[in-house]
Nucleic acid binder design. Structure first.
Lengths: 144, 144
DNA sequence: TTATTTTGATTGTCATACTAATAATTAATT
DNA sequence: AATTAATTATTAGTATGACAATCAAAATAA
């Protein structure tokens, strides 16, 4: 089982790299004096791109589970970046919307966030990106 | 900044896939009735491969920080899978060693864990593995 | 030797995950 | 229409992860 031993390492590498990426972004966010986390950013950006969504949709789009989404939204609400509006016809559901401050925050942060993201791709090509994407998607699918 | 938008997606994909891998392993562990987590497994395996180590070495080898390692070791100790032995010359340090049960656990689990790991690589080639490794390492280095 | 710095481990805090369980509401079934 | 099933969101419990601060012990410098 030589093969298994070798491939087993992918999971550590994957985990380490994913953590490094988040850690780097977190560091930069802090250096820039921003009070939100990367995961909170992802939610804001999603709302900015897609418009108002309910929590289920937000959770699905950002690949987070519902309890996590509830908490992220609680935190963003405290910071006045989003608001929970009641759904017109479904009383179980909330519509999440960016506030004025939330929208401004996204627009202020976006260029810097893109710089942060690009940093990881230095010295990597477009083909690398395609390969990377293909392999990640394949792994994801294999485990679903 | 079309490029940035496109490449930005890698971070989500990376995060999602890494989480999926952990989640899948966690599920399988539970289905098999094992009471340890993936991260706890990593520590046990490390001790099995490398022999007794102190907590600093364990943390470094598994890419975890010291507080996290302290906690994982606490949990493994409660389960009687490892023991903390005092260092012969350095009274700050502990030597962590597998117990008999810990060693047996690793040997019992190893084949299944390898199956779990291999599952992710279905339909992927050895070249894919090399590419994947190269890109992950490159990203990691870019952010260090 | 004494003072300073470094190191190994721990504790505390906050945020994120996964799971299970629950409440409230809506949809589907009979 | 009444019952049952499914859905939306929440709460609670456990684990991990990053970071800061602390303690004790060891190493180094003065």
């Amino acid at each position: 089982m030589q093969e298994a031993q070798k491939y087993s390492r992918y999971s550590f590498l994957l985990d380490q790299t994913a953590r490094r990426v988040k850690q780097y972004a977190k560091q930069r966010f802090r250096e820039l004096g921003w009070t939100i986390t990367i995961d909170q950013w992802a939610v804001l950006k999603q709302l900015y791109d897609k418009g108002d969504l309910n929590q289920r949709e937000l959770a699905t789009n950002t690949f987070k589970d519902h309890p996590t989404m509830t908490r992220i939204i609680d935190l963003l609400k405290v910071k006045n970046l989003i608001e929970r509006k009641s759904h017109p016809t479904d009383r179980r559901s909330f519509i999440i919307a960016l506030t004025f401050e939330g929208r401004a925050m996204v627009e202020d942060c976006l260029p810097e966030v893109q710089k942060i993201r690009m940093k990881a791709w230095e010295n990597l090509s477009d083909e690398d990106f395609q390969e990377f994407k293909r392999i990640l998607e394949s792994i994801y699918k294999n485990l679903s």
